[in-house]
Design a protein around this nucleic acid. Structure first.
Lengths: 236, 236
DNA sequence: TAAAGTGATTAGTATTACAAATACGTGGTT
DNA sequence: AACCACGTATTTGTAATACTAATCACTTTA
């Protein structure tokens, strides 16, 4: 979906490859990777490039290396689940119903609260940015441009909270919306379905009405939950 | 405070050093780092080790490298604010009032919601783990052991949500509680002040009463907000 | 004036060699 | 036979070096 990730250099390719193998489950937790020299050869990169990639995966909590023992995949508990890459890999490789459910639950918690905070503290510029995004949604003539404007809207709301911790949670919202665009039943036909709901949110933030903003956003997310195709992937 | 971070290897030391310099503000956003060869020499490590560290910092969104141009510190907007290291560095180096405020705001959003979810879905084992932590708090005879049990309690609650995204937010809670133990007015004298509040939360989760659990936790966090020493650091 | 080329600088990649940690087996001791 | 000490092999950690690729800034040229 939204994947403008450019492969600038070699080790980021290696990061992607190994990361997807792990998050996708082909390399299960507890399992050992081949030793660096061998793995490097198999992936047609130098040990240097491979190691730079492994350090990053290690920082994401996916793997753990020790001398003599080797490198093994860590238990899921230790994974940096909020990391943008990890989220993207999970959504791309295993958008199971239960995971989608968890993403929606996060939205239901974060977004209404963020909305209320935005209604209290937004600056005129931040409001303008939300408004611009809304205009973009209103003017959208296809799913592609709608999706972009929709993401921009929710990101702008988070920014209006003036809390950078909140803003960093956008990766979660992004993943949730991304899978929604893929799995939702409404996408094809009337993708502008939720425009009025967004307007209510915008107006509440404009008028500085925290509780109205919270409730509007709550309804929107709850509503979107219902619109997931029930067939899903069939997987648990 | 809670910093059992072992310096196993060289590049993790380099990560710490550079990370602290950046998050602490000594290396401002936009500023360039010395070129790799030079920086490596200054830090008394090989370029190899330095680069492995830089890739990790790059993954945390702190820096950005480009050929010919060099490596520069990125704007704070791009920082991975939810990363455990970044949070730890911020708390240790710049626990300004405004940042503490943001941490508390996150707690107020996350923890009551997590509590409600835990009350709905906790397994007997998960409940037992919360109970154990509570017993630890009850039995604590000094601030040190209290702090440990307190952290365990809140972590156990997050685990009981059965939502790994929620669990990953523990790094935020941990940072908030950590700075609380340092800055709170109550720490020295009666550090067990909040024990009854924790009991209410525990009982609500035991009895599977989501709304009671949510409200109890909400009160607890709101209450803790009041107990921060008002002098703080004086900084904005 | 603008376009094309050229050189210098810096990160990216590869290769090699060695250091350090440690699991495992070996051999000796009780 | 059980156990302890010790050496060795294996794997990651670190260093040094050489070269590649991108790109900025300057110069030359149309």
């Amino acid at each position: 979906m939204v994947k403008p990730i450019v492969m600038r250099n070699l080790h980021s390719q290696v990061i992607q490859e190994l990361g997807q193998l792990i998050v996708g489950g082909e390399l299960a937790p507890g399992e050992f990777l081949p030793r660096e020299e061998l793995l490097a050869e198999r992936m047609h990169v130098s040990r240097t490039a491979l190691r730079e990639a492994m350090k990053v995966l290690s920082a994401k909590g996916l793997i753990e290396s020790r001398q003599k023992t080797g490198t093994r995949v860590r238990e899921k508990i230790f994974w940096n689940q909020l990391d943008a890459d990890v989220l993207a890999w999970r959504c791309a490789l295993m958008p199971t119903d239960s995971f989608v459910e968890k993403l929606v639950e996060m939205r239901e918690i974060i977004e209404p609260a963020a909305c209320a905070a935005a209604a209290r503290r937004r600056s005129p510029e931040q409001l303008a940015r939300i408004d611009t995004a809304y205009q973009g949604m209103s003017a959208a003539e296809n799913l592609e441009s709608w999706a972009l404007a929709d993401l921009a809207f929710h990101e702008a709301v988070l920014h209006a909270t003036n809390n950078e911790l909140m803003i960093s949670l956008f990766s979660v919202i992004e993943s949730a919306l991304g899978t929604y665009f893929v799995l939702s039943a409404r996408t094809a036909a009337n993708f502008k379905y939720s425009l009025p709901q967004h307007q209510k949110v915008l107006e509440a933030i404009r008028r500085r009405q925290p509780e109205v903003a919270r409730e509007s956003m709550r309804k929107m997310v709850t509503d979107s939950r219902r619109n997931f195709r029930r067939q899903g992937t069939g997987k648990a």
